[in-house]
Computed example of a mutant assay.
Amino acid sequence: MIPFNKIFLTGNEQKYINEALISGKISGNGSFTKKCQNFFEKKYSFKKTLLTTSCTDALEMCAMLANLKEGDEVIIPSFTFVSTALAFLRTGAKVVFADSYADNPNIDPKGIERLINKKTKAIIVVHYAGIACDMDAIMSIANKNNLIVIEDAAHAIDSYYTDRKGVKKPLGSIGHLAAFSFHETKNIVSGEGGLLVINDDRFIERAEIIWENGTNRSKFFRGEIDKYGWVDIGASFLASDILAAFLWAQLEAIDEIQAKRVALWNHYYETITNSCTTPDFEIAPIPDYASQNGHMFYLVAKNLKTRNKLLALFKNKGYHAVFHYSSLHKSSYYTNKHDSRILINSDRFSDCLIRLPLFVDLEFSTIDQMVADVLMDSYIKKVI
Rank of each mutant, 00 (worst) to 15 (best):
I112T: 10
S23E: 00
T53G: 07
K302P: 02
D368L: 09
D361V: 05
I7G: 08
I116M: 09
Y289C: 07
I233V: 12
I257D: 00
F8P: 01
L353W: 06
C55P: 03
Y44P: 01
A156I: 05
E282C: 11
L343I: 10
A263C: 06
A122W: 11
F221D: 08
Y101G: 01
P279L: 00
M1I: 10
N199P: 01
L362S: 10
A249E: 06
I272A: 04
N303H: 03
F81P: 08
I112P: 11
Y101K: 09
I148V: 14
E41I: 01
D57V: 04
C133T: 11
A301S: 12
G294H: 08
L21E: 14
N12H: 11
E270I: 03
Y289S: 09
E224M: 05
Y101C: 03
L313H: 05
A178P: 09
F237R: 04
C62I: 07
E224D: 12
T162M: 06
S23L: 03
I123Q: 13
S327I: 04
I107D: 00
L310A: 02
N316K: 14
S236C: 08
A253C: 03
V322L: 13
R206K: 15
L65I: 04
D200P: 04
K35V: 01
A63M: 04
M61I: 14
E73C: 03
L304R: 12
D136G: 05
P285W: 11
E184V: 09
Y298D: 11
K381L: 06
N67H: 12
P3C: 04
T306V: 15
V371G: 04
R217C: 03
T84K: 06
E212Q: 11
Y379D: 07
G194S: 02
L353S: 14
I242R: 15
F97D: 02
A20C: 10
F246A: 02
L264V: 01
P285M: 08
E256A: 13
K118E: 15
V167S: 12
Y269Q: 09
G214D: 02
H329D: 08
K169M: 11
D232H: 13
V96I: 15
N308T: 07
H183K: 13
T120R: 12
L171W: 12
P77D: 09
P287T: 07
T52L: 02
F359E: 05
S240I: 03
L353Q: 13
V360C: 08
R164S: 15
T271Q: 12
K47W: 00
L50H: 14
C36P: 01
E224H: 05
D201Q: 13
A154M: 04
I257S: 04
L264N: 07
L21K: 15
